[in-house]
C-alpha cells in the first residue's frame, strides 16, 4: 500500500470526477472516466498516473464511452478497454495480458484482488488531482461570499 493520502472510494470517485471536469472533459464523460478510475482503485489496478495523463485527452474518453454504449464490437487493447467491458457486462469472463476478470473478481498475475472501498494515493497524485479539481471552483470574492449562500456571516440569534 502506498504511503500518502487515504480517501473513501466514493470520495475518491467524486475527486476524479471534478478533476476530469477541471481538465476539460464534459460532465457526462467525466462521470464515466471517474467510474473507470474508481474501478481501478477498488480492484488494485495501479493506473492512476496513466488515468491522470488521459484526462487531458478528450478523444480518448469519447472512444471509451462509445465502447460502453455499444459494447458488442469491442476489442480489448488495454486496461481501459477491460474496465469498459467489465463495467457494461460484469458477468462476462474476460482476459487481457496479466489481467483476468472472472465475472465477479479481478485476478492480476494470478492473484485475486480483494475489492476495497478505500483509495490510497501518493501526496503528489492527490495534489495533482486537486489542482485539476480546483479549476471547477469559483474564486472567492466579497460579492460571492455575501450573496451566494443567502446567509450572513454571524448566527448569534
Amino acid at each position: 500500500m502506498k504511503k500518502g493520502v487515504e480517501l473513501s472510494l466514493n470520495e475518491y470517485e467524486a475527486l476524479l470526477n471534478k478533476a476530469a471536469v477541471g481538465s476539460g472533459l464534459p460532465w457526462g464523460i467525466a462521470e464515466d472516466a471517474a467510474a473507470c478510475g474508481a474501478w481501478f482503485m477498488s480492484f488494485g489496478v495501479d493506473k492512476l498516473d496513466t488515468w491522470i495523463d488521459r484526462i487531458k485527452d478528450n478523444s480518448f474518453w469519447i472512444d471509451y464511452c462509445k465502447k460502453i454504449d455499444q459494447p458488442n464490437c469491442n476489442k480489448l487493447n488495454n486496461i481501459f478497454d477491460l474496465a469498459a467491458s467489465v463495467y457494461i457486462q460484469p458477468g462476462t469472463r474476460v482476459k487481457l495480458d496479466s489481467y483476468e476478470w472472472s465475472g465477479q473478481e479481478l485476478i492480476i498475475d494470478g492473484v485475486k484482488q480483494i475489492p476495497s472501498f478505500r483509495a490510497c494515493l501518493t501526496e503528489n497524485q492527490f495534489k495533482v488531482l486537486n489542482e485539476h479539481a480546483y479549476k471547477t471552483y469559483a474564486p472567492a470574492t466579497d460579492e460571492s461570499r455575501l450573496s451566494g449562500a443567502g446567509a450572513g456571516l454571524s448566527d448569534n440569534d
Binding site: A138, P139, A140, E143, S144, G148
Partner: peptide
C-alpha cells in the same frame, strides 16, 4: 449554481450580474 473555492461552499449567483460564473 456554483461551488466557491472558500471551503467549497455551494452557492447560487445571478448569471447576468456575475458573468464570470
Amino acid at each position: 449554481w456554483y461551488t466557491s473555492e472558500e471551503k467549497l461552499e455551494p452557492r447560487l449567483g445571478e448569471r447576468y450580474e456575475m458573468p464570470e460564473l
